[in-house]
Design a protein around this nucleic acid. Structure first.
Lengths: 194, 194
DNA sequence: TCCTGATTCTAGCAACGCTAGACAACCTGT
DNA sequence: ACAGGTTGTCTAGCGTTGCTAGAATCAGGA
């Protein structure tokens, strides 16, 4: 029995090794550099070992994405708690979100851009995803008007932030005006309130 | 001389053949199905011919993207002209934009998601791109407050629409609430005006 | 000590984007 | 009308990708 648990523990450790190696490699050189061969070399095992842990490369990316969501949730909460006032909190969270996307582009891509079979907008979504969204909800709720559907409003706000991040990251929007664009967005989402 | 022009014309025709074949294949089966071999078979030429027209697959996607922008511009203009009143026009354009993204996902990806080396936010950007953005500007301008930087506000609005489209397309947002999310967005961008 | 079962590795498949060099077709000048 | 040379196209193949079948190896139990 103890042997069994030891093996399971070692397996779990190796699985974490795979996920963190994939993440570090992606952040350092982009997801294109994360090939199964390269990843296998990084963890000092052969290629097929990866497939005994994950269904494929996409599943590894999904695992990295979940990890990233946990981190994002923490950063959003920190930003929210550091600010006071409904508008300032929304601005802080929006700023933290976009900063996260710009600071960790590869991680962000795995989370929100890459096609992935993670359940998102359902109760079966992994906890870290729900926590990250929950942080957004807590920031949006105070500026919602009476009768507003808060989750829906949060989704809209989230989409706006996501658009800013992705369009800027692909150079479709110049980095220059980012702060002012964010300001405009916050301004419109808090117009008439506070 | 006439021979030369005939050859150039034939070359141009073949180039259009490549672009439309790529586009149709992508729209029918997604960009993953658009391989250089498959594309070559589709146009009934051998693979290397593609490379005498385009630098690589990405360049073909970029050409498709430019074509898509021209179409988007037309659809946005049509929507804008069909509506009356500043708010209604903004709503119509927003709706047309997201409808385009949902109706032609592959085309939309090439235009706004896929990493592409098209110059975007510069004067050197291809005309169709500038026209499409110009349509958005014309829709946003009437609802801008005095002193608002209209291009910047347009970029912000665009990003919001883009976020809605991409998050919904990857199932990170449920399709269900789309109309209401769009409504909320338009509401916030026109709050206090009109 | 040997057997059995799980685990890991070697080797390879099919498909990808892209390219070098052979081949064929065409225009040009006599 | 015919050789010469340029232009254009194709065949074949390189290196890499994600993924997998089957051989080999290691471990635990009798």
């Amino acid at each position: 029995m103890s042997i069994q648990t030891r093996r399971e523990r070692e397996r779990a450790e190796r699985e974490r090794l795979i996920v963190t190696a994939a993440r570090e490699l992606a952040e350092a050189e982009g997801w294109d550099a994360v090939t199964t061969r390269r990843l296998a070399a990084e963890i000092e095992y052969s290629q097929p070992v990866l497939y005994s842990h994950f269904k494929g490369k996409d599943a590894i990316m999904a695992a990295v994405a979940v990890e990233g969501c946990a981190e994002l949730a923490v950063e959003l909460r920190t930003a929210r708690e550091a600010a006071s006032g409904a508008r300032a909190r929304l601005a802080a969270v929006g700023s933290a979100y976009t900063a996260f996307g710009r600071r960790r582009p590869a991680l962000y891509d795995a989370m929100f851009t890459h096609a992935v079979d993670l359940p998102f907008a359902t109760p079966e979504a992994p906890a870290p995803l729900q926590e990250a969204f929950g942080e957004l909800v807590r920031a949006v709720e105070p500026v919602a008007a009476d009768g507003d559907d808060v989750p829906l409003l949060t989704e809209t706000f989230w989409a706006s932030l996501h658009g800013l991040v992705t369009l800027m990251r692909s150079a479709r929007l110049p980095e220059a005006g980012h702060a002012r664009r964010l300001d405009l967005l916050i301004g419109h989402f808090t117009a008439g309130r506070v």
